[in-house]
Amino acid sequence: MSVNPAPVRPERSLFRRLFLINGLVFTIGTVVLALSPATVSAPVLVTEIPVLIVGLAVILAANAVLVRSSLAPLGSLATLMERVDLLRHGDRLLERGNGDLTHLIRTFNEMLDRLEAERSAASAHALAAQEGERQRIARELHDEIGQSLTVVLLGLKRVVDQAPAELREELHGVQEGVRASLDEVRQVARRLRPGVLSDLGLASALSALSSEFSEMSGVPVTKKVSDLPVLDDDVELVLYRIAQEGLTNVARHARASRVELTLRQELDGLTLRISDDGRGGVLREGAGIRGMRERALLVGATLTIDSKRGDGTDVILVVPA
């Protein structure tokens, strides 16, 4: 049975390397001074001072170059630490440099792998619970509040039929208000639980979503959905929710006059694209966009947002083949 040797501690290995570099520089400097015709008197003569200064400068410069090249990966590692985001998968540092720093970089990359895996698992549980809660609320809205409002409408109809003529117009207004509330409850329930997604498929669900968005916002949507392969339920739900959130962001922030929603199969995978001609200039990612990134990670997809001020916004989701 073979026993793996204990790993070298990075701080000891780094100390040893710096010690050897400095020792090598000073050893070479000593040998050069010993073999060169230059001499130093005691006390030092004025004419010898430039020689000493040049020698010292050469030694310091050589030492600085060697130490800097040895520690260069640490600068890249610090930059990665500052920009790392667990929602942006695959941001890693190449394992380059000497053995001790390579070990440090590899350990940091492995730590990011573990954190991303844990974040994805936690997000999956959270989003699954969120979908379950949405379905529960949608059922209660449809079965309880919706039925209660329907009963109220039927009662109002009987009251209107029996009411005197001078009250009927007012009661008709109340009746229309209750009917509008019932329609709003049904719309909220559909948004919370897209039954059309499970009943008719993703293409029909996106059509219904686009029509509802245009009706509520007044912004026309050009929809282009190509023939789709058979998709997992999780993939379909992620595509639908990201399209839903993308259109919601357009209605809230973009001030757009038109929107284009495209879903097609390409060589690198399935691509969902939501483009608008609004004001653009997304400088800060809010909870909505971060939620979209979390959903994308659940199916291994890549979410890209291109938003230039005055040139609209493109939200692109690529689900790998």
Rank of each mutant, 00 (worst) to 15 (best):
S217K: 03
G132C: 09
T150D: 06
A165P: 04
G177F: 04
V196F: 03
H142T: 15
A243M: 04
E215V: 06
R168H: 07
E133R: 02
L239S: 02
K157H: 13
P194A: 02
V185I: 15
R191A: 14
L228K: 06
R255W: 10
T248E: 01
T222Y: 12
V238N: 01
P229E: 09
A138L: 06
V259C: 06
V230A: 08
D183I: 07
A203V: 13
A208E: 12
G173S: 13
F213K: 00
H172V: 15
R255K: 12
V188L: 13
I242A: 00
R158W: 11
E144S: 14
D233K: 03
L261W: 01
L141Y: 09
G195C: 05
T222P: 01
A189L: 07
F213P: 00
S148I: 05
R190F: 12
L171V: 08
V160A: 08
R136A: 12
S148G: 12
V235L: 05
L239D: 03
L206D: 01
H142Q: 06
G155I: 13
N249Q: 12
A203T: 14
D199G: 11
A205E: 02
L182A: 11
V235G: 07
E184C: 05
V225E: 07
V151Y: 01
L171R: 04
P220K: 00
L167S: 09
K157C: 09
S204P: 02
S217A: 10
S148F: 00
G195A: 10
E170F: 15
R186L: 08
L237E: 00
V238G: 01
R168E: 04
V160L: 10
R186A: 12
Q162S: 14
S217V: 09
D233W: 14
G177A: 08
E169A: 13
V225F: 10
K157W: 15
L192I: 08
T222F: 15
A180T: 14
E169P: 00
D161C: 03
V259Q: 03
L206V: 12
L237N: 02
A203K: 09
V174H: 07
A243E: 01
Q162T: 09
P164S: 08
V235H: 03
G155N: 04
K224F: 13
R252F: 05
E212G: 04
H253V: 07
H142C: 04
Q244I: 03
K223C: 10
K223V: 15
T248R: 08
D233R: 11
L200R: 10
D234N: 06
E212H: 10
F213D: 00
V259T: 09
E215R: 00
L206G: 14
T222S: 14
D227K: 11
E140F: 15
R168D: 01
K224N: 13
V178R: 08
Q187H: 07
V196I: 15
V196L: 05
V225W: 11
G155C: 02
D234A: 08
R193N: 14
E140Q: 12
A205F: 14
V188D: 02
V219F: 11
K157V: 03
L231M: 12
H142L: 07
S204H: 13
E212I: 11
S226Q: 10
R168F: 15
V160T: 06
R186I: 03
K157P: 00
